Amino acid sequence: KRLSEREFDPDIHCGVIDLDTKKPCTRSLTCKTHSLTQRRAVQGRRKRFDVLLAEHKNKTR
């Protein structure tokens, strides 16, 4: 699936709103397109961004 077609989940996706499409970014939490500050500011996550990021990195090892 293309990035734009993915169902957005704030707990596994970057989530920064794309200015062109007005939709949240569906790249992983480790997205290189958006800064850490931008990704931390995303609302609606179950846990703090840093906790989710650490969990994500542990899963992908």
Results as ranks from 00 to 15, higher is better:
5 E>Q: 12
47 K>G: 08
60 T>G: 15
53 L>P: 01
29 L>I: 09
10 P>K: 07
5 E>N: 11
30 T>F: 08
25 C>W: 00
29 L>G: 01
32 K>M: 07
41 A>I: 05
3 L>N: 10
30 T>K: 10
10 P>F: 10
1 K>N: 09
30 T>Y: 05
40 R>L: 06
20 D>L: 06
45 R>I: 00
29 L>S: 01
46 R>T: 12
46 R>F: 05
18 D>T: 13
40 R>Q: 10
47 K>T: 08
47 K>N: 11
42 V>K: 02
46 R>I: 06
32 K>P: 10
32 K>L: 10
30 T>M: 08
24 P>E: 09
29 L>W: 02
25 C>R: 00
31 C>Y: 00
61 R>A: 12
51 V>T: 10
57 K>V: 15
18 D>Y: 05
27 R>A: 12
56 H>S: 07
55 E>F: 03
56 H>P: 03
38 Q>T: 04
37 T>R: 10
45 R>G: 05
36 L>Y: 09
8 F>P: 03
54 A>G: 08
32 K>H: 11
49 F>N: 03
3 L>Q: 11
51 V>G: 05
55 E>Q: 06
54 A>H: 14
33 T>R: 09
7 E>W: 07
41 A>K: 11
53 L>H: 04
37 T>S: 13
58 N>Q: 15
18 D>G: 08
15 G>D: 01
9 D>V: 06
16 V>S: 03
52 L>P: 02
2 R>C: 05
57 K>C: 09
50 D>A: 04
14 C>L: 00
33 T>W: 10
2 R>N: 15
43 Q>L: 11
6 R>L: 15
27 R>D: 13
55 E>W: 04
26 T>G: 08
19 L>E: 12
49 F>Q: 03
51 V>D: 09
24 P>R: 08
41 A>H: 08
45 R>F: 02
29 L>A: 01
18 D>N: 09
28 S>E: 10
59 K>T: 12
32 K>E: 12
8 F>D: 01
3 L>C: 06
51 V>L: 09
35 S>Y: 02
23 K>A: 11
3 L>M: 15
9 D>S: 15
41 A>G: 10
36 L>E: 12
36 L>P: 05
15 G>P: 00
27 R>C: 12
53 L>I: 07
52 L>G: 02
15 G>F: 03
6 R>N: 08
54 A>K: 10
20 D>T: 10
43 Q>C: 11
41 A>Q: 08
9 D>R: 07
30 T>I: 12
31 C>N: 01
46 R>L: 09
43 Q>S: 13
22 K>V: 11
12 I>N: 14
6 R>S: 10
42 V>I: 06
41 A>D: 13
2 R>W: 04
14 C>F: 00
8 F>N: 02
27 R>S: 13
34 H>V: 00
57 K>T: 07
27 R>G: 14
45 R>Q: 03
14 C>K: 00
55 E>D: 08
58 N>L: 12
7 E>A: 13
30 T>G: 09
16 V>W: 03
44 G>D: 05
56 H>G: 08
37 T>E: 15
31 C>I: 00
33 T>M: 13
40 R>E: 08
54 A>Y: 08
41 A>S: 11
16 V>A: 04
61 R>L: 15
30 T>S: 08
31 C>G: 00
55 E>A: 06
4 S>K: 12
28 S>N: 07
10 P>G: 07
19 L>P: 13
14 C>H: 00
39 R>C: 01
21 T>E: 12
33 T>G: 09
30 T>P: 02
35 S>H: 06
18 D>W: 05
12 I>H: 15
61 R>C: 04
20 D>H: 10
2 R>M: 15
3 L>D: 15
12 I>D: 09
41 A>M: 13
42 V>G: 01
12 I>C: 15
56 H>L: 13
41 A>C: 07
54 A>N: 09
24 P>G: 06
58 N>H: 09
57 K>D: 15
19 L>S: 13
23 K>N: 07
53 L>Y: 07
58 N>K: 13
58 N>I: 03
39 R>E: 01
61 R>G: 15
4 S>H: 12
28 S>K: 09
15 G>I: 00
49 F>D: 04
14 C>Q: 00
48 R>N: 15
9 D>W: 04
5 E>T: 14
23 K>W: 10
55 E>V: 04
46 R>W: 04
51 V>P: 04
50 D>F: 02
29 L>F: 06
25 C>T: 01
26 T>Q: 13
33 T>F: 06
34 H>F: 00
60 T>H: 03
17 I>M: 15
44 G>T: 04
13 H>E: 04
6 R>I: 13
50 D>H: 03
18 D>C: 14
3 L>G: 12
9 D>L: 06
24 P>V: 07
28 S>H: 10
37 T>G: 11
27 R>F: 13
56 H>N: 09
38 Q>G: 04
6 R>Y: 07
22 K>H: 10
56 H>D: 10
25 C>I: 01
45 R>C: 01
50 D>S: 06
36 L>M: 13
16 V>Q: 02
21 T>L: 09
48 R>P: 14
44 G>M: 03
8 F>C: 03
16 V>Y: 03
14 C>S: 00
28 S>P: 15
20 D>C: 07
25 C>Y: 00
7 E>Q: 13
32 K>D: 15
19 L>R: 11
3 L>E: 13
4 S>C: 08
47 K>F: 08
14 C>V: 00
18 D>A: 06
20 D>M: 11
49 F>E: 03
50 D>Q: 02
32 K>R: 09
61 R>I: 12
35 S>L: 04
17 I>Q: 14
4 S>F: 06
36 L>C: 05
10 P>L: 11
19 L>K: 14
16 V>D: 00
7 E>R: 11
60 T>F: 02
4 S>R: 04
18 D>H: 09
5 E>Y: 09
10 P>V: 09
12 I>A: 13
30 T>L: 10
59 K>D: 11
51 V>E: 15
36 L>K: 12
11 D>T: 07
40 R>C: 05
44 G>W: 03
5 E>C: 09
27 R>Y: 11
36 L>W: 07
61 R>F: 12
9 D>C: 15
53 L>C: 06
25 C>F: 02
22 K>G: 12
5 E>H: 11
37 T>W: 08
17 I>R: 13
27 R>M: 11
42 V>M: 01
56 H>I: 07
13 H>M: 13
60 T>S: 10
52 L>Q: 04
45 R>V: 01
51 V>S: 14
46 R>S: 14
